[in-house]
Every structure is written in structure tokens, then in C-alpha cells.
Design a protein around this nucleic acid. Sequence first.
DNA 1: AACAGGAATGAAAATCATTTTCATTTGTGG
DNA 2: CCACAAATGAAAATGATTTTCATTCCTGTT
Lengths: 121, 121
Amino acid sequence: MSRSNPRVLSTLERAGGFASAQEVYRLMQREGESIGLTTVYRSLQSLVNDKIVDVLRRDDGEAIYRLCGEAHHHHLVCKSCGDTVEIEGGAIEKWAKVMAEEHGFREVGHTAEIFGLCSKC
Amino acid sequence: MSRSNPRVLSTLERAGGFASAQEVYRLMQREGESIGLTTVYRSLQSLVNDKIVDVLRRDDGEAIYRLCGEAHHHHLVCKSCGDTVEIEGGAIEKWAKVMAEEHGFREVGHTAEIFGLCSKC
DNA sequence: AACAGGAATGAAAATCATTTTCATTTGTGG
DNA sequence: CCACAAATGAAAATGATTTTCATTCCTGTT
């Protein structure tokens, strides 16, 4: 068992929102940090074990990580131009919580996205 | 664009619950069906496009498919055993509509999923 | 300071699901 | 029967993730 490399965590923080292991790695490289991809993966896994970060899956199956507890938001995405608006999801949080309780689920997280055509398109 | 091979759909039905592309393939082989893995993938994709099957992700990132039962619903998925409960999302529908209006979006759809640990895990 | 043993690191190879390529087969209308 | 499009599948390519393993880095101990 290895412990997490602190620079990985700090990079994930700086990334804001979600980032995949590959993205964290590329980001660190671009910033001149000397680190191996393996270490990035190991560190992220360790952070997940310690429940310091959440892990989700993108549509394509790539794992994306995010700081636990970080105020998370949802997205409103335009199908046509790809423009994205960050929106708040108070209603969702409540819904997720209620549904989870109703079915005896614990440690729940959720994903929610809205997509459509923005006013310009 | 290829159309779905009907044997793939029928195998997915017979599998009950969720099955990954690899599982559908193995199942068909075991039953003596002559089919290629590529065709299984293509057929499943096509079924997803036609909204005949749902696709989700297991914890390990593998895509799992299942016949789309009813109309529009959301999922409560166990991260550990993959058990899935279909839940109703009235709150979400409303939230999506309000958020879309607020930002001038039209023709909106949405995705929402909750995941956690079920009572058995 | 030198040393030992364990943890951390990363390059390269291995894995595994999924996608792409491409040559072959099949089916259908003319 | 022929031509042409769609379907098929074997093999290669892709891409994320994991494993292997040799090396480096710590840290506590003589």
C-alpha cells in the first residue's frame, strides 16, 4: 500500500470539478512537475480508499475524480455548440438523499446533467 | 450503420437483468451460436441508439446493457454488487425544466443517476 | 558516516474492454 | 445471374488501467 503523493491532490484541487487520472497527469506535466503516470494512478486510488476523493465514470468509461465534499455543481450543456453553464442542484441533492433512504442505500453520490439547445442555437 | 442482430437482443433478454457485451458474447458462444464479438458490440450500440436498451457502467468501467423497460426513469445503483433499482424522478423533471428556462435552453433532456451501497453490501 | 530494510517511484510490459480496419460473405433488387 | 449495398468477423489498433520489477529515497540504528 502506498500513500498518496501530495502533489496529485493539490493538482486535482487546482483542476476544479472533475478530472481523470490522465488529465491530472497531463496537467502536472504541463506545469513541469516530474511524476509518473503510475504514481498518479496509485495516488488517486489511495485517495479514494481514504475517502478523500470521489470517483465517477464518464460516459466513455473513463474514471473521473473529484474532491469529496467540494461543493459540486451540475451542468447545463448545449447539444449544438457545446456551451456549458454550471448550475446549482439543491433539488437534486434532496431527491438523491430521499431516494437513497427510501431504498436503504448508504454513502450515495449522484450525477445529473441537463442538455438541450441554448438561446444562441 | 448496421442494424441489430436479433439474436443479440434475444440473448440479452434471456440473460435477465444486466449483461456486458463480453457476457452476451460468451453466453451466445456457450449456446452454440456462431457470432463475432464485433457484431455483438455493434448490435448493442445500435439497440442503445434506438433506445431499446439502457447502458450503464459497472464500477470497473465495463458497460452493461439491459432492456429498457418502461418510459423515463432513473437508476439507483449499488457500487458494490451492481444491484439496480428503478426510481421515479418527478423532482428531477421539474428541476431540469426550471433550470433550462432560467438559462434560455430549449428542447432539453437530462440524465440523473444515484449510486451508493445497498442494504446488503 | 555507513547500513539495513521498507516504502515510494516510474518505465516498460501486460491486461482488458472497446473500436477500427478491411477483406469476405450474404441478401436483395434489377 | 449480376451488381451493389449491408452485415459479418478476424485481426490489429486504441486507450485506460494495472502489474512487474529494478531503482531510488527515507528513516531509524549502530
